[in-house]
């Protein structure tokens, strides 16, 4: 998998949302990009382990 970096996130934002991120965010953006990659990879692994018959929780239903 290619490394997720700040430039990639900026490109995605331009491509998907037609706007740019902002210069004052750049320092944190590279750190967040690394974290995001770890989270997404971890999540991908976890998702594969979920049983096939497991349904999503009802989003707005209260706990009873």
């Amino acid at each position: 998998m290619n490394k997720m970096d700040a430039q990639l996130l900026k490109n995605i934002t331009v491509a998907l949302n037609g706007r740019t991120l902002y210069p004052e965010l750049e320092t944190s953006l590279s750190l967040y990009a690394q974290e995001l990659q770890i989270v997404m990879q971890t999540w991908k692994g976890i998702s594969k382990l979920l049983p096939a018959d497991l349904e999503p929780a009802p989003v707005f239903a209260s706990e009873k």
Binding site: I12, I46, S47, L50, L54, E55
Partner: peptide, 18 residues
Amino acid sequence: GQYYSAASYVQAQRLRTL
């Protein structure tokens, strides 16, 4: 929040059930 896929969100809601 814009970088998470719809599938990731749904998987998170599935984990909620579990």
